[in-house]
Simulated assay, not measured.
Amino acid sequence: MSARLACAVVLASLALASVPAHANKIPPIQAVGVDERVGTQLPLATPFTAAGQGPVTLGTYVDGTRPVLLVLAYARCTMLCSLVLRGVVEVARKMALVAGRDYQLVLVGLDSHETIDEASRKQAALLADLDRHDDRASWPYLIGTRAGIDAVADALGFRYAWDPRTEQYAHPAVIFALTPDGKVSRYLHGLQFDPGEVTTALTDAAAGKVITTEASAILRCFRFDPASRTVGARAEKVLQIGAAGIFAMLVTSIAGLIVWERRRARRARDA
């Protein structure tokens, strides 16, 4: 076998070996989702630490007079959290209702390892986007223990999970309108929020109404890895097509080299 042909065979072997064995595996986050529990009372006595303020409870920001717009996110999230928070900032800027006056914005951090410094920096960035800058009370950022975070998440029916492959929490894209006494009034799903819809949700919450979402498109947080069966199937299909294409190209190249080698050997014998 000539050196060129041997090289081609080695390249083919390496190309086939480079196709990931786990390409068709789906991340272990199938439990992620939302179980809507409208009317459920949130655990207001749950202790947290508010960035720039100190020890508080969730009930500190549920004063019985204003509705609450609650967000679950965390500073280290590089994908879905940033998009959800951007959507919250945009809708808060567009609404006639004013955060801190007409309703209370609250962010509960999902990551129990998040530090005060991380929370403070993220809060400062959010407040700057909202043109509220040093007004920390208008959008408090709460960090807590895993037990405290899970108590709030469980009451909301907010199911999330740690994905070790991406080192991110997988979670739904949803925010929550709460009544002034801390009951779940409505779920607002998605990454972008209509000002009219959020205004209505807060107005209904202020009146103590509870609204069930008829249909919800739940997005999951992921970084380049499939986070649902649909995305996983598509990724797998792309990998299969790519691998098949590479293999076909290599087979064609090897066949060409074999034909060339035989012709060269025949010419050498005839000479």
Rank of each mutant, 00 (worst) to 15 (best):
V98Y: 07
L107P: 03
S82G: 10
A119V: 09
A96V: 05
R86E: 15
R101F: 11
G54V: 00
Y103E: 14
R37N: 10
V71L: 02
P47H: 02
D63P: 13
L69W: 08
L42V: 02
C77F: 06
E114M: 09
V71T: 12
V108K: 01
L110I: 05
T40N: 15
V62R: 03
T46Q: 07
T78G: 03
V84E: 10
V98N: 13
L97E: 05
Y74H: 09
V98Q: 15
I116P: 15
T49K: 02
V56P: 06
A96Q: 12
T46M: 06
V71W: 01
T115I: 07
L44P: 03
G109W: 00
D102M: 07
L85G: 04
V62I: 11
P43G: 14
L58D: 11
L97Q: 12
G54N: 01
G39V: 11
L80W: 00
D111Q: 12
R76A: 14
A99V: 02
G39Q: 12
Q123P: 07
A96M: 04
C81T: 00
L70Q: 06
Y61R: 05
Y103C: 14
L44I: 02
T57V: 03
Q53H: 14
V98M: 09
R93S: 11
V56C: 13
S112Q: 12
V91Q: 00
E114P: 12
K122T: 13
P43K: 07
D117H: 11
C81H: 04
G64T: 10
V71K: 01
L85T: 09
A51V: 04
L72I: 01
D111M: 09
A92T: 11
V71D: 10
L105M: 13
R37E: 05
D63I: 08
V68K: 07
T78L: 05
G64W: 00
P43M: 08
K122Q: 15
V38Q: 06
V56M: 08
P47R: 02
P43R: 07
Q123Y: 07
G100T: 09
A50L: 02
A75I: 06
S112I: 00
K94A: 15
V91G: 03
T49P: 00
R101A: 15
T46A: 13
C77V: 06
R101G: 13
A99D: 12
V62P: 08
P55L: 04
T115G: 08
R121N: 14
V106E: 15
T40G: 08
P67S: 03
A96P: 11
L44V: 01
V38F: 01
A119F: 10
H113K: 13
V89A: 13
Y74Q: 12
L69Q: 04
Y103N: 09
G100C: 12
L97M: 09
V106S: 14
G100W: 03
E118K: 05
G39L: 11
L72R: 10
V108R: 05
Q104S: 05
C81I: 03
G54C: 05
S82C: 01
T65C: 06
V89G: 11
L44Y: 04
F48T: 00
G39I: 09
A96R: 08
K94G: 06
T60R: 10
L69Y: 11
L85C: 08
L110V: 08
